[in-house]
Design a protein around this nucleic acid. Sequence first.
DNA 1: ATCGGTACCTGCACGC
DNA 2: TGCGTGCAGGTACCGA
Length: 271
Amino acid sequence: MPCDHLNVPELPEVETVVRTVTPRLLGREIRQARFYSRLVLRGDAAKTAARLRGRCIESVRRHGKFILMDLSGGLTLAIHLGMTGGLLWNAEPGPHARAVFDLDAGRLVYDDPRQFGRIELGASLPERAARLGPDALEVGAEEFAARLAMRRGRIKPLLLNQAFLRGLGNIYADESLFGARIHPLASVARLGPARVRRLYAAIQEVLRAAVEAGGSSISDYVDADGRAGSFQVQHQVYGREGAPCARCGTPIRRIVVGQRGTHYCPKCQRA
DNA sequence: ATCGGTACCTGCACGC
DNA sequence: TGCGTGCAGGTACCGA
């Protein structure tokens, strides 16, 4: 069986999901939609199902951590996977299935044990998605630097702030800071241009490598039809508390920043 | 704008 | 073995 999507979906995982489901969904017609969670679905289940019926999926795209499906007739279905959401293809709905989309060919199941994910249907992308910052993989170096210059506070919480940059989550924020050799508590205002450039480059490299590997760990968000899990990207700091830093051998340290576990090398990443 | 806290959920690791 | 506790972190919201 598929899917222990135990890993939290961030930009690379969502990108992987989008790439995997797109060829299966493009041009398909939604025959029937069913919703099983008042928490996950924003809006009335019966009305949403009625609006979806008969529509074709014209495009699938990623917007930060959102999955957006543009439907015929000018509607957009937005799916956010939260922390434990995943899409299963042609799967039998399990106890955590929160939505099922029966298509003219195949079936898409939205599975989400903790129900932190959200599904909403609207005329365009939801307002809360529209007001986010530029996509972490699309932003240019200069725009990144300019946006950073307008901010204060510590760097790690800023990287997690989707209104600043959309797509980074806890894992890749830590990995990016390690790549740039910047301490997670470093003051944004005191980051010089060299470190800002390094941070930008590290974010791009970390995200691209993860996308290339098909996400952070098991790639079976959509693998109900039995594709073997892909290889895993080796995290340098995340989840490696006490293990030696790959660069200098110093034990990786874990602290809490903004209520979130934060991993870094105390020697490579100075404040 | 930033900061710190809470809440939403449930599965799982851990300790006794 | 069994049970309680705490933790995981994406996002929204609150007051300061």
